[in-house]
Amino acid sequence: MKKNDLLLIGGFALVMAVINIVLVATHRLHWVGRFDPKTLGTMVAAAITIAVMSQLYKDNALFKLAEHMLVGSALAYGLMVTWYAMWVTEIIPALSPLKTYGWQAVVHPMKIAEAANKPQLLGVWSIFLPAVLGLMMYTRLNKKYAWISRIPFAIMIGFGVGLAIPNEIQANLLKQLQATMVDLWHDPMTHQYSWNVLFAQIAFVGVMATLVYFFFSVEHKGAFGAVSRVGVWFLMIAFGASFGYTVQGRLSLLLGRINYLFHDWLAIVR
């Protein structure tokens, strides 16, 4: 098993090497200088592409290899981005008054923040307080003290929920109410009955029927059941439309990868 995996990986590397040498020799790929990281990158990327695609055949060593490479580097990349975007550009500069003003920055944070032209309103405390909360999160890693982490969670989730309630009602309820309560007999442009009015009526029925489907405390029987069934039909039409559109999008992405292999790397497709 283990040996087979190694053979597969070695064989793949060999085949890729041969193909790449042929490509360079036939000037389909251009190797400039003694070491060309860019062209090497193209070669490796092609190999990775094939390795990830190989999972379509079956789960195999190549795919696992690519997968672990991806996970390892993606994890590190994520940490790096957060570090440089958060710590280096925001947290550390926000603490700089500590260096210039010493304890004054802690005792009179707001005054110092204003003087140092910092965007944080509470000066260094804008960093200290959430940092303490953040450190409390780490108690999750210890079973005995895990309850401490409930406090930062409660603060975060409480505030999120508080903002969400009015904003949800505003954006999804009142806005949609406004959009649904429309003139169902006159076209807004011509003030006459028209095809668009018919469509608007159909859409109105659709909204109502779909809402009926989402009633949970009433059994869907009789007339109610019939309306909810119409609702299901509308739902299915919408899902079908969504599906059809997505097929197109996904195939385009696949075309992108095929283009990469056969145009950028093998240079067969012009």
Partner: peptide
């Protein structure tokens, strides 16, 4: 896997002949 190959070819062949 046959389906996959089919899709792959259906996309690749027309690409070779733009």
């Amino acid at each position: 896997r046959f389906v996959f190959v089919g899709i792959f070819l259906a996309l690749l062949i027309p690409m070779l002949v733009p």
